[in-house]
Every structure is written in C-alpha cells, then in structure tokens.
Nucleic acid binder design. Sequence first.
DNA 1: GCGACATTGTTTTTT
DNA 2: ACAATGTCGC
Length: 719
Amino acid sequence: MDVSQLLDQLNDAQRQAVAAPPQSLLVLAGAGSGKTRVLVHRIAWLIQVEGISPLGVMAVTFTNKAANEMRGRIEGLLGIPVSGLWVGTFHGLSHRLLRRHWEKAKLPQGFQILDSEDQLRLVKRVLRSLDLDEERWPPRQAQGFINTQKDKGLRPQHLDDTGDATNRQMIRIYSAYQAACERSGVVDFAELLLRSLELLRDNPDLLKHYQGRFRHLMVDEFQDTNELQYAWLRLIAGTQTPVFAVGDDDQSIYGWRGAKVENIRSFQKDFKGTEVVRLEQNYRSTATILNAANALIENNDGRLGKQLWTAGDQGEPISLYTAYDERDEARYVAEQIRDWFNQGNQRKEVAVLYRSNAQSRVFEETFISMQIPYVVYGGLRFFERAEIKDALAYMRLLANTSDDPSFERVVNQPPRGIGDRTMAQVREFARAKQISLWQAAGELVQGSQLTGRARNAVAGFLGLVHQLIQSCEGLPLYEQVEHMIDQSGLVPHFEKDKTDKGQSRIENLQELVTAARGFRLDPDEHADMDELTAFLSHAALEAGEGQGDPWEDCVQMMTLHSAKGLEFEQVFLCGMEEGLFPHRMSMEEPGRLEEERRLCYVGITRAQKKLTLSCAERRRLFGSDTYNAPSRFIGEIPNEFIEEVRSSVMTSEPVYRPSAVADTEVGGFRIGQHVRHAKFGDGMITNYEGHGSSARVQVNFEMAGSKWLVLAYANLQAV
DNA sequence: GCGACATTGTTTTTT
DNA sequence: ACAATGTCGC
C-alpha cells in the first residue's frame, strides 16, 4: 500500500502518534478516539516506512480478543499475512517464552497451566496437607494472597516474616503451594508472567537476544497493567527499545485486581524522553453524551486530564427513567427496545448494561415474556465447564502423568470406588517419598499397602490411563480426544443424569472433539509444542466464547466491565442507584469510589446515539427489599443533558404501591430522620432494607461516618 | 456414592 | 431469593 495513505485517514493527533520518531510514546486515548486504529497504523508505519521487520515488533494486549483483532487489522492494512510479528496477551507471550526455553525456566517440557479454579482446588489441597482449618484460613484468601504476591514479583523467600501470625501462615501456605506446583509441573496464570520475567532476568544472554530482537514494543490498555506486567515490559524493553503505550487513565476499572494506573505516570519517568500525545476527538458519540461523560469524570481527582469533543451533533438528550421497582425498570427498557426495533433498527445495536450480573435476571424474564431475543455475555465459557475440564484433565494426564491436580480431578470421576480413604493413603505416600500421585499410586498397587477393593480400583484407573497413553500414540489430536471420551467412562456417567443438564454435558464432550478437530497449530504461537500440549494450553489461555450468537439480531446484555471497548447505537445504563452503582462495597473508600465513577464513564461512552439511565425506587435484592437513593452519578451529570421520562403505559404498580409514608418507614424510623446512637453519636438515617427483626438502617453519623445498623440491636433514639 | 438437608455468601473478570 | 457448596446418614 501507498505510504501516504497510512496517514491520510488520520486526524492530527493520530498522525502525530503514528508517525512519531522512534522513541517511547504515551498515547492517552479517550474513549472512541481511534485507539486501536492508531496502534495498528503505527505498526504498519514501522514496518513500511521505518523498514522494521515484523520480527522486530512485539504488541501486547490483555485479552485474546484484542490480540486477534489487532493482528487481523494489521494484516488487513498491509494486505499480507504478517508472520513473525509477536502479537498476543501478556500471558500468551510469556507462555511462548516458557515453552521455548522450558529448560532454562526450570520447567518440565510438558508443563500445564492452571486456571483460577484449578488453582483454588490446589490451594485447598495444600491447606489440607498443612492441616489447616479452612474456616480459619479461607482458601480464597490464601489464593488471593499468593496471586497478589506474584503480581508484585515476590516469591515466598522475598517476604518478610513481620511477626504477624497470619502473615507467617500465609507465607507458609504460599511456599507449600509453590512446592506443589513445582512437583506437579503446573503453573498458574501469574506464574507464567513471573517465571518468564525471571527466565529473562537470570539469563543475560537470552535477555540480550530478545532485547536485540524486539526493536519496538507496543502495549494496549496500558492503564490496566499491574506491577509485574509493567516490570516485564521494562525488562524486555531494556534501555534501547522504544515503547508505544496506549491507554486511558479514565477507563481504569481493574484496580481491584491489581492494575496500577500509576504505571501511566511512572512510564514518563522510566522511559526517558517520552512524548505524550492526547487523542481527544471522539468519533463515536453525540456531543450530549460526551459532555455528560466529561462532566461526570471531572469529579475525579488526579486525572491526567482530557476533554473529549466531537465534530458531530448534539443528538438526543439522555433519558432518565425512575422505575417503581426492578420489574418496572425492565419493562420500560423492553418497551423502548421494542419501539426501536419497530422503527427499523437492529436489536444488536442495543446494549443493556448493569453493575452486577445478578441484575440480568429480571431483564431476561421480561425479554422472554415480551419475546425479545437477547444474549447475555459473561457466563461460563466452554473450556470452563465441569465436563470439559474433566475431559481435559484426562488429556493432561496423557501429556504429563505427574500433573497432580489433574490426577486428583479424575481419579474418581466417574466414580470408580476410589474414596477419600484411599486417596489419603496415596497422598501421604506421595508426600513421604516426594513423588507424584501417579507414581505413588503405582507403587502402592505394586506393594502390599493397598488391600482388595481399593487396590483393584486404583489399579483399574492406572490401567485405564496407561491404555489411553498407548492407544493414543501417534494419533491425530481429535482421535486422541475421541479415544479418551470413549474409554474414560465419562459419557455413561453423565448419561445417568436424565435431565437436560446431563444431555448438554454429553453434547459438550462431542463439541470438544469438534474443537480438537478444528484446532490448528499456529507456527508462531505453538512453535515449541506438540499438538496435544498446544491444544491444552490454548484451552487454558483462551477459555472460549461465552454465550452469543452473532447471526441473530439480539439485544446485548452485559456488565459494565465487559462492555469496555465495545460500542452500541443505544445504551441502557440500569440500576443507577446508591449501593448498587456505586456498589456498596466500593462506596466508602475514595479511591474505589473513583473507580466506580470511571466505570460509569465507560458505560456512558459506550453509547453512540442514545443513552438512557434508569433506577428503581424499590429493588428486591438478596431476598429483601431495598430502597436506594438515585445514584450520585446521575446528579453529577448536568441537568441540561438529561430528560426525565415517564412510562408510556399505566403500570399495574399502584395495586401494591404503598403510601409514601409506609414506603420509607421501618420500625418507627424513616429516611431523613435524625437519630442518636450510644457509641456513634448523632446522625441521619439515609437508607434502610429488610423488615421486622432483620431490618437494617443506614445512618450517616456526624462523627463516625456512614454505618449500617441492625435496628433490633442498635437502640437508636429519635432526636 | 448418593440424596437430603444445612450453611453460606452474594461486585466487577482475564489470563 | 437463591444457587452453590459442604455435611451427614444410609
């Protein structure tokens, strides 16, 4: 393609970024400002104009989807398939390095990847082996601790024993967990990154090789990087390689899982001579929507600063619907969508966005009853289904018999009489001799420790896997999967469940064969792997699509988090209520509240033409009624952009609708009332939920701040 | 090994 | 409210 064309399609700021001299650059790309476009054009520019070989470019993203899209668009732009260009996720690229240099990384060649669920199972097992009570040491907390440490680049030996008993125990758990991983030849997600970082750091020749190879690094969604990812980037970049980082501090919504927006600031210090380019022209939304978004985000402190603008029209005002309850809210949205569709628009151009997944239910019920097709994003994905994970565990044992987590998973799945008793013996034996469960089981069967029934059962399982290994030798991947499904006994086992659940499990197993048949080795991605290992890694790193039928014209339903990066002509932002959004768990801390606000900003900026906000006066949540005030975020949008709407039809609501007094009164107190508490002093009731003895009120105390109190115990005095 | 019953937690999610 | 675990008795 003609070089000049690369720049022709861009605005000034975009062009400045794309054609920048080869130095580090920070692109602050507002929502809808053509971020991916700039990234893709920059790569094309480097290859075509700067004469950089595709081999010299690495582009890192967070999701596989983003990586695939980027690769596709680069190839579209250049008109040829680009091989040798490393485009992938942090985890995918780390994985690639580890497979290529498994020996130097001190990993077994057939190492397997644990997803979060596998990891949690393993943590539980480690806790049991340390004889720790799960009540006192919640597995999830231990898992969180381990991942947090790894995300900071810390190994157990780096952690200080602060003298705190909890901390000491956590370090002990982390150590034991890590030892279990090493013995089994498995790595968790964080380990992929940390291990590859250590690989490069501890092998200067390797590091030099990769630093020499990659002449340019590109990072997408830079605001979402955590400490470890940023350290990984810095290591690979070294002192010479320019990094092209694209991000938006206003769209940082993953702080809760370790993302550090601060990395954006550090970037300018860590990479000397970094230029900053702001992309502020928005090509997505109407001026009204953008102005609302700008006004909202102004309420956050410490932003790098950005003002989105558009050359387009004002567009329609933002609608605000205040519903009686969540059913009324869903009904209103459904009607609006029906009208929209009847006016000749597509349903798939409409998104219903909410803060938490539980909110989707009412919408689903309403859409079904009104016969509006919809898709919900973000359920269980294909490779995460229990039956698929069972099947994959068998396949993993074929690849690596010392994979203890997989052994544990299927040793008695389907049930074959190997109970806790027997497994306890096997585990103990394995621990004593420092060998894998597989080896331990083998030796126990050989020896005389196991008796009659248990011995037969274990021998049966070992024989089954042995036989699978032999019969799969040299077969194409999908035939291996077929063999495994035939011989494992999983199908007869699931057949016992006569419900459609059992039926669908069997269908999924069939689907796994299809997936295996369709699996193609990618020469870049899977260079150092056999077909089975490549397939298993693919399954762990790319869990497959959630639900979603791209052919049907469906309303799109998803959480605000999963909406990031997407756009729709019409967007409904639902459940705009204090406690729900901002979520109750994030309301107290200023930092977390700001993240909620950014989430709202993300939601608003998804809309191209029309945005509707909705909230409900009463909402049934966790079994009891809650009465939430409208979200503060609604108030942060200037009134001039908002138009309150009423339902077009009379609802049946008045039948149940209690009087205003009854509505806001509980146990003799009402919202707005001033009360006194023995310990917290004076305050005002701002909210309540539940009835009778379980009724709780939220009181904003003058001195002690906002608290939820159970009315029955709080002994509040009216002031 | 399975079904019945109790307990528990319930923001967001990728890899 | 409700689903997803965990526990217990046969």
